[in-house]
Each structure stands twice: as structure tokens, then as C-alpha cells.
């Protein structure tokens, strides 16, 4: 039965929700589960990955069931112009110098995020609940949180020519640049918040 969007509650994910968050995010990568070693192994590995992802996590709940999840981050540590003291503390002075050298010389494919830019790391909606506006609700909730945290822009990377591009355009994101990595051609989209 098709649920109405009013039935969906979006709330912050707590520690007890991590398994559900993992399940939902994994559902967005269903075609990759074989590469992780099948459903059983993915059931153990994916929660480790999702649990270790830093950032703000929200879930969409309906009828007591978690049907969607989103993870956004607000911080990226860059040894060139980021939190130098933190880098030195963990890597030591020599390690930090090496990090600085690599960061200076490396041309990364992914566009560098702006100062005070939140970035969408992952979003997923369970297959039975797609096409009902759940993803939009999650993105808007994450956007509101980013704004409260003082972020000025919201950015994300999306595969070029994918249906998701239209989805993000409807939510107010605009393509700012194209980039390429070993996964193919990508668009970086951004909106002011």
C-alpha cells in the first residue's frame, strides 16, 4: 500500500539506529553487495563502514520501520589550510610535513569543498519506499541541520546522466563543475543555504 508522505517522520539517528542506517545505505548499493562478499558478509562489514563515517545522520521512519537514511559532513581536515595542530598531534611533525607535501602536489579529482560547506556523503531509501518523496525530506532535514551549524553551502557529487541529477535540481542544487575519477564522469552540485 502506498504510504502518504505525512506518515514519514525524519529524526536524528542515535547509536541504536546504526544497524538500520547501515541496512538502508547498503540498499542503495545493492549491486555492489556481491563485491563485498554477499549479503551475509555485507551485513557485518557495512555497519562497520557506516558506523565509522563521521557526520550528521538522519533517518526516515514510517510505521516504526526505518526506510531512509542520510549522512552529511561538515568538516574536512586539510593539512594545507585546515586544522594544522590536529594533524601534527596525530601524525607528528615529520608526518604532518609529509602530509603537507602530498596535499600541495596532489590534484584531487573531487572538487575542494568551500569554507563552511556541508557535503552529502550518502543517502539511501529502501526500494519499496522510493518515489514517495522520502529522499527529498531527508535532504531538506540535513540542509536545515547544516544551516544551524553555520554552513553556507551544501554540496554533493553525483554520476553524470543519472536520474539523481534531476532529483537534486528539483531540490535547488546546481551543477558547478564536472570531474572524472575511476568510477566515471561526475557532476559536483551545490546550493546556497
Amino acid at each position: 500500500m502506498m504510504r502518504r508522505i505525512d506518515d514519514i517522520i525524519i529524526r536524528r539517528a542515535g547509536a541504536p539506529d546504526m544497524d538500520a542506517v547501515s541496512r538502508v545505505i547498503a540498499s542503495a548499493f545493492d549491486d555492489k553487495i556481491v563485491a563485498i562478499g554477499g549479503q551475509k558478509r555485507a551485513g557485518r562489514v557495512v555497519p562497520i563502514i557506516v558506523g565509522s563515517m563521521r557526520g550528521e545522520k538522519f533517518i526516515a521512519v514510517t510505521g516504526g520501520e526505518v526506510v531512509g537514511a542520510i549522512i552529511v559532513t561538515t568538516e574536512e581536515i586539510d593539512p594545507v589550510d585546515g586544522n594544522v595542530l590536529k594533524v601534527v598531534k596525530v601524525l607528528g611533525l615529520f608526518g604532518a610535513l609529509k602530509a603537507w607535501r602530498v596535499a600541495r602536489s596532489y590534484t584531487r579529482s573531487t572538487p575542494k569543498r568551500l569554507e563552511k560547506e556541508g557535503v552529502l556523503e550518502a543517502v539511501g531509501v529502501m526500494e519499496d519506499h522510493r518515489g514517495q518523496g522520502v529522499g527529498g525530506l531527508l535532504v531538506r532535514r540535513a540542509e536545515a541541520r547544516l544551516k544551524n551549524l553555520g554552513m553556507k553551502t551544501f554540496g554533493l557529487g553525483v554520476k553524470e546522466n543519472s536520474e539523481a541529477v534531476r532529483f537534486y535540481e528539483r531540490l535547488g542544487f546546481e551543477v558547478v563543475t564536472k570531474y572524472h575519477n575511476r568510477l566515471g564522469d561526475w557532476l559536483y552540485m551545490r546550493k546556497r543555504i
Partner: peptide, 11 residues
């Protein structure tokens, strides 16, 4: 996890 730079993912 200190840097989380993901430079390694590119290639």
C-alpha cells in the same frame, strides 16, 4: 581518520 582526505579513492 585524522585527515579523512580520501585522496586514495581517486585512482
Amino acid at each position: 581518520s585524522t585527515t579523512e582526505c580520501s585522496f586514495c579513492r581517486d585512482n
